[in-house]
Amino acid sequence: MQIIFYIAAIIAIFSTVMVITRLNAVHALLYLIVSLLSVAVIFFLLGAPFIAALEIIIYAGAIMVLFIFVIMMLNLGREAKEQESQWLKPSMWIGPAILAAIILVQLIYVLMANQNETFNSTVINAKQVGMSLFGPYLIGVELSAILLLAGIVGAYHLGRRKKASVHRFFEEASE
């Protein structure tokens, strides 16, 4: 079972690298879905089946589909691909790679400071999570509800097609 974890980890890392290096947006999204799926596998292995399912349904299923819809609506076309290749010169990667490497070094340093004791993961099923949500984390649930409400209202407002609004003064004057 150990090896599945490492395989899923490698697939996740590889597909994430693919996401950030693709020129075509749809390709990148597909790779992102693969990455999310492998992370879901890891969740399963860690004894969090509920979360793994949620990851697939919501993250890969809803959010990524939303992305795909928006890209379809934008209708970018061939010239977008050329533009992307112009923007992605190899020299662009050096700076961020160095910064990320520094943080990675710091992270490894912190992690290696502790001993590598392993633990056995027990399964924590949906019921336990549910009891926790409706128990101590009740307020968090309410707050997420409000956040979703804000999201809905915001998305609706931003997506509205506005007619060209003329002040009624000018409306009367143009008649």
Binding site: G95, P96, L99, I102, I103, Q106, Y109, V110
Partner: peptide, 17 residues
């Protein structure tokens, strides 16, 4: 974003090391 990352590096350094 680069600025934020820089700050994060420095903060990590200060906190960790």
């Amino acid at each position: 974003a680069v600025g934020i990352v820089f700050g994060a590096i420095i903060t990590l350094y200060v906190v960790v090391f």
